[in-house]
Amino acid sequence: MELTAPPVGGRRPDRMPNRSRRLPWRRCLVGATLALPLAGCSDGHSVLSAKGPEAARVSALGWGMIVVSSVISAVVFGLLAASLFPSVRERFRRHDETALVRWGGVALPVVVLLALSGLTVAAMVPSDDRDGTLELTVVGHQYWWEVTYPGTGAVTANEIHIPAGRRVRVALESPDVIHSFWVPSLAGKIDMVPGRTNHLVLEADRPGTYRGQCAEYCGAQHARMAFVVVAQEPAEFQRWLRHQAEPLAAAATDRPGRAVFERESCAGCHTVRGTEADGAIGPDLTHLADRDTIGALTLPNDRREVRAWVRDAQQFKAGAEMPPIDLSSEDLDAIVDYLEHLR
């Protein structure tokens, strides 16, 4: 599995995604069709290269609309250009001048838009609830994502694991401000509105990692509120879920850093299941070492970055809840060591 970990301040994450394996022809076609020399043929987060049935319905519609509107625009621009040539004008002057308005301005849009209206409603009809739909809940916080799997006890953050090829119904909530949950290659976005629960269906055709990001401006660090959806083979997913649901065994947490973690302010905000730490403000850190990034994809999850983050998260994400923590170098090392072993 590979992950996009956006580096900050010139640091590069250890695992950089390998994006150049193949050139998705359709995405490159966008560049060609739209006649722009854009080297933007990347993978994994594009509306027009759907990676699941929900997004596929929309991308088909999107491509259709791009083609039809390009044709109509070309006709209009052609007429506009033609009006600059006297010979063409002569030809038009012989016809009924309002005919163009009636046909082009009324008839053409009516026909096109009626057809489009039908296609829209067809594409809006919710897909059937199939048996075995998996349910999970994502809660948007300023500025991270809390992911829970109801009935299992599994809680994680900023990484949503789903089984590939299976319909997943995601309940979306927010306790603070409005966020919007968006994984472009899998589905359209739905807002997380305080006081409501909205739902969205995610389904990935194949195992892979799909990037998502908050799409409703939610405050200072709206830009650093990203996440990934990790689609796995169903058996692999089940193993992952069972593991995430378990609290940590005593042996796993028996490191010097645990005492520092519980003594300092960390435990007031974070939970590590299987220990005393049961804070409910920040992300659950029980299986932190399993994750590839920290800070909602702000930094790669490795020793050096975690150390810098714990010491002063504000330097990476000013305005986030996590305060700078004043620790001796030894304590800091101990905490980082502890966190890097939470599996």
Binding site: P6, G40, H45, V47, L48, G62, S180, Q213, A215, H222
Partner: peptide
């Protein structure tokens, strides 16, 4: 279409 939300003050490379 490549997934960039509006009102972001920054974005990472590689996307």
């Amino acid at each position: 279409l490549e997934g960039m939300p509006r009102r972001v003050w920054t974005y990472p490379e590689g996307l």
